[in-house]
Simulated scan of single mutants.
Amino acid sequence: MTMTWTSFTCDEPDFAVRSIPDGVVFRVRRSALENSEVFRDMFICCEPGTDPLLDEALDLHETAQVLSALLHLLHYPPEPPIPTGPAICVSDNAPTSNTNFNRECLLPRIPLYDSRTVIPLPVLQPILFDLVDKYGLSVNIFQVLCSHLLAHAPSHPLRVYGFAASFEQIYHRRRSRATPSSANEEKQDLFGIQFGVSAEKEMETQMRKIASKAIQFLEPIGSYSMTEVEDSIPSVKALHRVVQLQHIRVKTLREILNESEIFPKGYGACPSHCEKTTECWDRQRKAVAGKIDSGTDVAGEMELFVDTLKECRVCHKAGVAAVEMLAYMCYRLPRQAQHLAKLT
């Protein structure tokens, strides 16, 4: 079912909230509003016996559309997006041998979701995440929104990466301003875990993971316009993280390719075509090395050459083995920012 964020109703309302700009009154459940730290604190501060009546409304400076989205989050917290089938993605575990090696299992894959269950990116960012931050929504709601944000990473990597990096910085600055005493005195009850310092640490961690994963889907950073980069990436540090990872990947991919051999140390050499095949491999290798970028499928480029060796069974077998080794070596190169330290 397609999610709707522009209108709101609920069963058994016992409270009212009014949009000041639009004058629209929403009937709500007070218990649902307590999923917000802001509303929870407000209710706690109310004197006993002075609970607002049903016909009294809490006025908020939000448009009806934004307020509707907030009330949806509080009353009907979203579920994670629903996968449409097995994700076409790289396994987290590298193969331990080349037995029955399938190069395709090493290619980057994209998770697929039912689009009707994925919250649209313009609704997520900035509307829903801004509401989470402004009204102090629980970390559980935040985590589900993160799963929706990550679902957009393959198709909108620059926007997702930039937003996650900016959110990560906001929460890091906020936590750094917290005094040691306030952090130590925080109650580690359910409320503290959902809304307190611990929750903010978890939110920062979640956004760091999203930024790290989104970076693998980015095109070479030079392929984006200046406007796209300025509008999406929040800081020089965040931009440098991308440039550094892509630079090191290009450098390392080129090194791996330049060191590859079709007949390593003469192993499996064809007695009839060894010299000619080696020369052709080297020529193709140099051609590919000259056009490598951070997302180049090096093994796939070399596989095109191997297809020309089918007339000789020995040469073709050696070429397939060399491409499989290339794919394995390239697969081991980290694509995510969290693994950047392994390359430096």
Rank of each mutant, 00 (worst) to 15 (best):
R175N: 11
K286T: 08
V242K: 04
T179H: 05
L333M: 10
V314Q: 13
L53R: 15
H273Y: 15
L149W: 02
T96M: 12
E202R: 11
L73I: 03
R241P: 01
I141V: 14
L60A: 04
A64E: 03
K237M: 14
A321T: 15
G300R: 08
A289P: 01
R177N: 03
E219L: 14
N35P: 01
D41I: 01
S223L: 10
V17S: 08
S19Y: 02
P220E: 07
Q206D: 09
A214P: 01
Y224H: 06
P80W: 07
T117C: 12
R283N: 08
R116K: 10
T227C: 11
I119T: 09
T84C: 06
T252R: 15
L54A: 14
V144D: 03
S19R: 04
P86D: 15
A87L: 07
P264G: 14
V90Q: 15
R116P: 00
V144S: 09
P21K: 13
K310P: 00
N140Y: 01
D41A: 15
R285C: 09
K310A: 08
T2S: 14
Q206A: 14
E311H: 06
E12N: 14
D55C: 08
P120I: 08
F15M: 12
E79W: 02
M302D: 01
Y328E: 10
F8D: 08
W281S: 12
P271L: 10
T277E: 04
V132T: 11
L304Y: 10
C45P: 00
V314R: 07
Q143N: 11
L340G: 09
H148F: 06
T63K: 07
E37I: 02
L67D: 03
L150K: 06
E311D: 11
K276C: 13
L309Y: 05
S225E: 08
I110D: 00
F305N: 09
K286S: 13
L124F: 08
I127N: 15
D51G: 13
N93P: 01
K286A: 13
T9Y: 10
P154T: 07
F101Y: 11
D22E: 05
